[in-house]
Write a protein that binds this DNA or RNA. Structure first.
Length: 547
RNA sequence: GCGCCCGUAGCUCAGUCGGACAGAGCGUCCGCCUUCUAAGCGGAGGGUCGUAGGUUCGAAUCCUGCCGGGCGCGCCA
């Protein structure tokens, strides 16, 4: 595809040089796969894109471009079609060559090096250490992990990081809530503060605390007491969150503590840096960041009139730390309630001298669980919500991840629990996995005595050609998914490939064919299996060998 | 009030840096197992792309207004 684009541009240049077309700065050529098979395997509306700027009829542009399109790989034929499309037809030799490449490269097929080893840090989930992970966290975990896999596949050096908000008011409330639960267990009359954490998990945590440490802590002075309870609760909950992610197949390279930023003085320093760079001012007793200079819609308080920092400051210090660790690009996946915060974070980083592009933020939208067609009600206030662990226990890791990755991350998602549990073709994840298992089954029956070096040009049936064409698209699909930060493209690709395979399988015999054909079809099946496995791997979903 | 996301088939959603008659899955209806996994396949039906204008050879896609749904907008984190 890349080369086809380049050839189109070159053809345009050649036509201009030959005086057949006026010289203008043209747009980038679009190359696409036509829906209609009669329109070729690939097609480009490039002539029509150029027509306006050139003020030459599209059809004429197309013909002149076609005349100058040299150096196409053998087996590729160009046809000019009605309004001015250039349609490319790939013959059997070309497809056979593409298939051979899949078989040669094996698990490496689909990868590339466009990232050039640049370092990317993806921060995701980053839930407060005040309770179990919820279903939105599970969505973010699936998306972040898959993005990391995709970026690694196209040549970036990727790290996954989880930011732990273990300082500030939230964990203070957590400590207070834990204390109340302890006292309640000991028979005292105590009530949760209004902004306390009501979930049952804190009762369990309190019980665990009593078993391990007894009740002596309650006799300590308040400050010391709450600090001990806070540390206990934060570390326990954080570890539980990590364990939930691990069970889900998501591994973080680092859990980054906010408190550490305070302890090392990084938080104080970042305010000093912003002051030195002249992007702050004093007003009404507070220190403000002149965020409007950098595109935010209002200036933001950094240091409150009581001397405390606002929550942005440690976050800025954290992002500065990430950059200083040598990452070229920071990607944050945030919850839908955080978008107001993006502009100020960008503004702060720009004020520190970094280009606006170093921080890329994606908002992961809400998840609504559906059971028997109705939304499962959740109440954060009452501490009643479905946890990530519960979801995974109910539908399984693969289904959960696949369902999250089927949709574009920035649209709200309805998660059909009943569908996710079905073990039939209605369930998309099973549909894809089943295709893989079927292929493995073929090889179990074929055994080892099949000839190497099958004659791939025997694969001329429409279903075979469609499969080969789909396989040849995989690398560009992976690249597009990585560049657009769109794992759902891979999910769709897998669904399409699995569908094409099921059609092929139903229409044609593999093992029952004449040996040369059987060998060629086994090769095709091997390639499909490898690409399905790789595609699923990019989603963090397993490719079972039998089902 | 301001900002962001969303509005496409009965349902859930792709497609949204303009391109060839608008796609998929589920659900509905009709077919296909003496042979490699029927956890599968084939076919049918189903859409004023929220709405009204505009730009363009061409608009689901770009611009403007309006309607509907969700979420933000603190010297809270």
């Amino acid at each position: 595809m890349e080369t086809l684009r380049e050839r189109l541009v070159a053809a345009f240049g050649a036509a201009v040089a030959a005086g057949e077309l006026p010289s203008v700065a043209g747009p980038e050529p679009v190359v696409e796969m036509p829906r209609e098979s009669g329109h070729g395997e690939l097609a480009s509306p490039y002539a029509m894109q150029l027509a306006r700027a050139l003020r030459v009829p599209p059809r004429v542009v197309a013909e002149r471009l076609a005349a100058h399109l040299g150096g196409l790989p053998p087996g590729v034929r160009v046809v000019v079609a009605n309004p001015g499309f250039l349609n490319f037809y790939l013959d059997d030799a070309w497809l056979a060559q593409a298939l051979a490449e899949v078989l040669e490269r094996g698990p490496d097929y689909g990868g590339s090096d466009v990232g050039g080893g640049r370092r990317v840090l993806i921060e995701f989930v980053s839930a407060n250490p005040t309770g179990p992970l919820n279903v939105v966290n599970a969505r973010a975990a699936a998306v972040g992990d898959s993005l990391a896999r995709l970026l690694a596949a196209v040549g970036y050096r990727v790290e996954r990081e989880f930011y732990v908000n273990d300082a500030g008011g939230q964990v203070g409330n957590l400590a207070l809530s834990l204390e109340v639960r302890l006292r309640q267990l000991l028979g005292e009359a105590a009530e949760l503060p209004p902004d306390g954490y009501p979930g049952e998990y804190l009762v369990d945590l309190a019980r665990g605390y009593l078993e391990e440490h007894g009740a002596a802590v309650l006799e300590l002075p308040e400050e010391e007491r709450l600090a001990l309870l806070r540390d206990f609760a934060v570390e326990r909950i954080r570890a539980q969150q990590e364990a939930s992610c691990e069970r889900y197949g998501v591994h973080f390279d680092r859990f980054f503590s906010e408190r550490r930023l305070h302890e090392t003085g990084a938080v104080d320093k970042v305010v000093g840096l912003l002051r030195e760079r002249g992007h702050t001012y004093q007003e009404e007793g507070a220190t403000w960041l002149a965020a409007r200079e950098f595109g935010d819609d209002k200036d933001r308080v950094l240091v409150k009139s009581d001397g405390a920092y606002t929550y942005v400051v440690p976050d800025v210090a954290y992002h500065l730390d990430k950059l200083r660790r040598g990452h070229d690009l920071l990607i944050d996946l945030l919850g839908p309630d955080h978008h107001g915060y993006v502009a100020r974070m960008r503004a702060a980083l720009e004020a520190l001298g970094y280009p606006p592009g170093v921080l890329e933020v994606h908002l992961i939208q809400q998840v609504r669980l559906l059971r028997e067609g109705r939304a499962v009600t959740m109440s954060k206030r009452a501490g009643e919500f479905v946890t990530m662990d519960q979801l995974v226990a109910e539908v399984g890791c693969d289904a959960a991840r696949f369902f999250f990755l089927q949709r574009s991350p920035e649209s709200p998602l309805d998660f059909d629990l009943d569908l996710a549990k079905l073990e039939t073709s209605e369930n998309p994840v099973f549909y894809v996995q089943y295709a893989h298992a079927r292929i493995c089954s073929l090889f179990r029956q074929a055994g080892e005595n099949w000839p190497e070096g099958a004659d791939l040009t025997l694969l001329t049936q429409p279903e075979e050609r469609e499969l080969m064409r789909q396989l040849s698209r995989f690398p560009e699909e992976v690249l597009a998914a990585a560049q657009e930060r769109a794992p759902h493209r891979v999910a769709r690709y897998c669904l399409e490939l699995a569908g094409l395979f099921h059609s092929f399988y139903n229409r044609h015999r593999v093992l029952g064919s004449a040996p040369p054909t059987a060998a060629a079809r086994l090769s095709l099946a091997r390639a499909v299996g490898a690409v399905l496995a790789r595609g699923l791997d990019l989603l963090g979903v397993t490719a079972p060998e039998r089902m």
